[in-house]
């Protein structure tokens, strides 16, 4: 029946410049959700070093925190988590049928608020590393 006729980049992700707010919100939400799942595994791995004793745990954490990349990754994790939570709340409102006319504005608000929180967190996360 409806096989979509292949028009190359006419369709789908090749059109990303034309996506509107709701679509971007969806993409970012899936992306951040799966990054969080990925982090969960790393998180468990790092915490598990405590099984080998308090010293191992402390030295592992100290070793990680000494790396500049890790500091930046932490900022990234915060960005991902904050956006997922804020947009998650937006999606819950959408599910309840509240404020659907403003769904694009609530997405932009999530983005801006995420940006602000992330910027404010930078001094804390990078303290002593630079």
């Amino acid at each position: 029946m409806s096989q979509s006729y292949d028009r190359g980049l006419v369709e789908d992700f090749g059109r990303w410049t034309e996506f509107s707010a709701g679509m971007w919100a969806w993409i970012f939400h899936k992306f951040t959700g799966w990054v969080l799942v990925g982090y969960l595994f790393t998180h468990i791995a790092v915490l598990s070093t405590a099984m080998a004793g308090p010293e191992v745990y402390t030295s592992t954490l100290q070793g990680l925190e000494a790396l500049l990349v890790v500091r930046f990754l932490e900022v990234g994790l915060l960005a991902v988590a904050v956006f997922h939570i804020l947009n998650g709340v937006r999606l819950l409102l959408v599910d309840l049928g509240i404020g659907l006319e403003s769904q694009d504005r609530s997405f932009y608000a999530s983005l801006i608020l995420t940006g602000a929180i992330v910027v404010a967190s930078v001094p804390t996360f990078l303290a002593g590393a630079l």
């Binding site: 969806w26 599910d95 049928g97």
Partner: peptide, 26 residues
């Protein structure tokens, strides 16, 4: 429906499609 709002954006008759889909989910 993943509430991407694409349909609501394009409907030439301004039907709040996503809103109606969400209402039916409830």
């Amino acid at each position: 429906c993943q509430t991407q709002f694409s349909c609501t954006e394009v409907c030439p008759k301004d039907i709040p499609l996503t809103e109606h889909i969400q209402a039916l989910k409830r």
